[in-house]
Amino acid sequence: MILLSTGFDFSKIYWSEIWTATWDTLRMLFFSGIFTFIIGLPIGILLFMTARGNSVWSRMLYRVISFIVNILRSVPFVILMISIIPLTKLIVGTSIGVLGSIPPLVLAAAPFFARLVETSLREVDRGVIEAAEAMGASKGQIVGKVLLPESMPSLIAGITITIVTLVSYTAMSGLIGGGGLGDLAIRYGYQRYEMEIMVVAVILMIIIVQLIQVLGDILVKRFSRK
């Protein structure tokens, strides 16, 4: 109602383009989310395990991984995206479209997720880990049977935060022709002054974020036993 009264004309909207863009955004989220999880989780576990290790080597390994993660996290996404275009081409063969946006998205989100994983694992009661060690559990068993199940709610919350962050990253990937809702909003809203499309695109992104958050909260609740 407010929008209508400010002179927006929603009859000018190209709905088919909006649906294509929404679909692109969802695909980007899905694939970058999966790869972020696959790459970020082991790095997070490695960060946690090497930080507690006793040997000189493990502490050194921790510092190296930690340093790389910090670097990737301090580069703004827009700059990271542009600067790795050659690498993106090497990996997926193109630097534009949904496919071309996935490597930079993963490279930006995986270190972020890895830190969240590390933090989640640190919250696991040390006593429980000690008990597992006392029962003769190997390092792998401690990860698989203690750390991950015990930190499950916290890990799910971390995944939720990461995917929401990815939503805003996908919007920026429009700058290098990544496609999706963000791209649509910039092209129509910023470059052609067609505010209606920008408004619709933003509303759709809000809906996507809300859905992810609600789903994440439900899962966290489902896995909480404390």
Binding site: V146, P149, E150
Partner: peptide, 11 residues
């Protein structure tokens, strides 16, 4: 081994 704070898996 048993512990003062039990150290059971809460999950």
């Amino acid at each position: 081994m048993i512990f003062q704070h039990f150290n059971l898996l809460s999950s």
